[in-house]
Amino acid sequence: MGVYVIRRLIWLPFLVVIVTFITFAMLRLGPGDPVQIWLGQHQNDEVRERIRAKLGLDDPLFIQYARYMEGVITRLDFGESFKFRGKSVREVIGTRILVSMQLNLAAVIITLGVGIPVGLLAALRQGTGWDNLIVSIALAFQSLPVFITAPVMLLVFALHLDVLPTSGWGGFFSPKIIMPAIVMGVPGIAIVVRLVRASVLDVLGQEYVRTARAKGLPELTVRYRHILRNALIPVTTSFGFILAGLAGGTFIVEIYFGIPGVGRLSLEALNARDYPVLMGFAIIATTFFVLANLIVDLMYPWLDPRIRLGAGHVA
């Protein structure tokens, strides 16, 4: 176990370097040139060559990468954006990430807040029509594309009822967050419902529940102290997963509701071949992903001792 963790930790920086280097290389070797985008309709090869040389874009790849990583490691300097000329990458990315994280958090709260009680209900009604109905409705909501939920919400709540603001960002406690969070959170409810339902059923079959019931504890106590609490362990572990999953899907919601988040920025950066901003995202995302992976790996044996770490190396 100890050896395994150490091995993983040593591997981690290599992983980040390999991934960022390949991303760096693909960006630069792939089609598209930020200077050409600056030039727009005035393509001029001389000007382009001159500016590329000034920016150091013509240097060998390894030198460019080394220069970039040196800035990142020694000064936490991610460079200057190519799209927002004159702005540093930290300035461009910083607040966006916070916005996206808050929105995702709000969405997760909706997913879990609705999903857990409904899942519990489904489990307790197991085998009845209610059970099937609940799961089917959750699945139906999951099947609705955002292309219809977002416009419908906008029309109903913003235009006709005029109870919610149409768009913008006002922080976590502003009413502006309500609609986007609902649109983002609802499709995930089905996942949580089925997760909770399954784990509650699992717990219901456990000895301690039978014991508790046999002891004559009130049904409510049994349900909330014994069943729900134990059933929620896997849900807690899924929290991170749901959050990470949402992070990938915020683009359209950001666009429909005018939220200055990461999704739109990364698209714009890609369109403009804004290498520094894209690399900033790549480094943050990779590090986050790798760390999350490690933590999860370490958590699993603790949750389920049957999984042995390093079990891959069967002689």
Binding site: W11, L15, V19, I22, M26, S266, T286, V290
Partner: peptide, 26 residues
Amino acid sequence: DAVIMRTGEVTSSFPEILLLLIFVSA
């Protein structure tokens, strides 16, 4: 096993959309 698993970790750590787009446009 070690090579495949390590390679897999690398490939699955990428910002996919980005690379996919470049891959496709190339």
